[in-house]
Design a binder for these strands. Structure first.
Length: 197
DNA sequence: AGCGGGATTTTCT
DNA sequence: GAAAATCCCGCTT
């Protein structure tokens, strides 16, 4: 029987769309919150926009480690973003999780984001998790989870069947200044939690 | 809806 | 010392 996470060993460009529709099960406070991954970006070692491009450093070591682990980095002086490491061990590649759709625990996530769910309009509810740093704040993912194994609590990856190609939009990545033309951003078409349609 | 600036600190040159 | 895989707010169309 093959490991259900086998596809994580592939190239980031292949893994990123495959992760759409998969779920993260996170222990947040005293409950388990499940979220559907709706937007991802691939970062490869041969990619000038990737943290791993110039080789392994203390910060990026986890990207070069085994797949199916979390690479959490700190940026802009105040934000955490999380990636799922993929590819062979020794290769620096990962998939940035840019947006998720909460399936339960919305009030808890809002509280972590310093928002009051009862005061949010339907239009505003998506802002709880529609960005890479927002979802980390909502799910309480920070530096302590850098290198975390996604087979284990408190953050587990739950695989789901691959989506149909027609359900996935492929386009350029956001917020980078190098390799801006590479179409390595993927999102679920029409999903309201996607950061930018 | 889109643009511009400020926040804030780690990381690497 | 500069840049950074971001977010939020305020201002202008």
């Amino acid at each position: 029987m093959s490991d259900k996470f086998d596809f994580m060993v592939g190239r980031a460009e292949q893994v990123a769309p495959r992760l759409l529709g998969c779920e993260l099960a996170c222990t947040v406070g005293n409950q388990i919150v499940r979220c559907k991954i709706v937007e991802t970006e691939a970062y490869d070692q041969s990619d000038a926009a990737s943290h791993s491009y110039k080789g392994e450093t203390p910060r990026t070591g986890v990207m070069f480690g085994p797949p199916s682990h979390l690479y959490v980095y700190f940026t802009y002086g105040m934000h955490y973003c999380c990636n799922i490491v993929c590819g062979e061990e020794g290769v620096g590649s990962a998939v940035l999780i840019r947006a998720v759709e909460p399936l339960n625990g919305l009030a808890t996530l809002a509280t972590n984001r310093k928002l009051d769910l009862s005061r949010l309009t339907d239009r505003q509810v998506v802002t709880i998790t529609n960005g890479p740093a927002k979802l980390c704040q909502a799910l309480a993912i920070d530096k302590r989870l850098n290198g975390h194994n996604l087979h284990e609590s408190p953050v587990r990856l739950v695989l789901k069947p691959a989506l149909n190609e027609q359900e996935i939009v492929r386009t350029t990545r956001i917020g980078i200044t190098k390799a801006m033309d590479m179409p390595w951003r993927f999102y679920i078409a029409g999903n309201p939690f996607v950061s930018k349609q």
